[in-house]
Design a protein around this nucleic acid. Sequence first.
DNA 1: CGACCCCGCGTTGTATACATTCGCGTGTAT
DNA 2: ATACACGCGAATGTATACAACGCGGGGTCG
Lengths: 240, 240
Amino acid sequence: MTSDKGNTNAKRAAYDLRQRIIKGELPGGTRLFEVALAEELDVSRTPVREAMSRLAEEGLLERAPSGGFVVRSFTHRDVVDAIELRGVLEGTALRLTAETGVAGEAITAISALVDQIDACFADPGLPDLDLYSELNASFHDDMAALCPSAIVQSELERVKSLPFASPSAFVFRQRDRAGMLQSLILAQAQHRAMIEAIASREGARAEALAREHARIARNNLEAKAFGADYQHPAMALVIE
Amino acid sequence: MTSDKGNTNAKRAAYDLRQRIIKGELPGGTRLFEVALAEELDVSRTPVREAMSRLAEEGLLERAPSGGFVVRSFTHRDVVDAIELRGVLEGTALRLTAETGVAGEAITAISALVDQIDACFADPGLPDLDLYSELNASFHDDMAALCPSAIVQSELERVKSLPFASPSAFVFRQRDRAGMLQSLILAQAQHRAMIEAIASREGARAEALAREHARIARNNLEAKAFGADYQHPAMALVIE
DNA sequence: CGACCCCGCGTTGTATACATTCGCGTGTAT
DNA sequence: ATACACGCGAATGTATACAACGCGGGGTCG
């Protein structure tokens, strides 16, 4: 086979479909027909079904009652709620972490990561947003990894997999540099406060911080500095 | 076909598999082989794959890295956490409901349901636990239905679908009648308080109540007054 | 003219044959 | 004796043919 994204045709098909959905080429509500997709992707129906199943597990597709799959549609409200929900779950994760306590090394390690993030916009030039986005995602991942509950971890992971609910989805939306810097500074203050909270076992504080932290994303979304080309929420995250 | 559980073979296979997993016949970690299951269920591999995919969506199976499916295993800790998580999500749902406000009819309707639940153990004889379980589930469902966030609703639904995280999973665990009655009375008080809270838009109170409410299930679990005959939901794994 | 039935096509459901992959064991060669 | 390689077998991956189902259009009968 030529230049497989993954190993199997099913994985490649899933990858392609996922990209198309995220880019908004397949808007919410679109019915996916096996045969059509099969010939577009140049594979048989079997891996297409397999791919659609996987995307349904991810929450990007829904099973139609009569059979078949439909691209899940997310309203603006859904996007807002998903961010809120991420805040709630991250808050729960942090609360449990705080209640259980964490080793000192973990605290120093994650503190170092936050210091690294500072470096992204300490420079007077324009901040390196790609790097920020990556490090920020690492921070959130590392934080989640400290949570003693595998169940909470996996459900949080699931919500974060929605393209617009990811912690760094709306970093890029801020148009004006001043406002963006303010957001980043606030975010960093919250990052440090979260570490402090779990280090000193302040569960309620950690939980509240995580929820408030998610509000930054929500505010960036609401600020809708995005242009008229906005059509599908999932598109919001598209780098652009 | 004879007496199909659902329409298609895939649905029937999913049903059968789900039952087997819940009953503990297929303990966590069991690798599911398509061919073996296909001949056991007397269908071809295709609907078996389809069924496994659906169960993976439900969270009962995991995809093995090398391909294929494995019965997801839940530790005691996972069960506790899933109940905690249900409390958190129900709390979020109630908070959002309270913040948004609900119509008066909805309040009276759900109040009537709580009154109905009273009837289950008003009788001096032994309470009708089957009916209680059913009505209790209705209460939780109806409450969730009031939530203005479809996303929160669906994630809550997802967690509740885990057999041991369902609101009425551990009602039956209490052995002694006195303790059980106490639990039920407490639960009813919380039910009413939740209604009151959403009616008067007390979001924080509603959220706290839902979390505490879930603790009843957790306590019933921890009390492990369960006898040897207990087999119910996926508890094979809990057994100790 | 209206309503109902039936046929045909499009779509998903199912079975099955064939391909591919990967691990494991055995055999041989050094 | 050890190491490497070959091959076999079990498992999933893939293609495809056929079945079943639903729905819409057109024809016919009342």
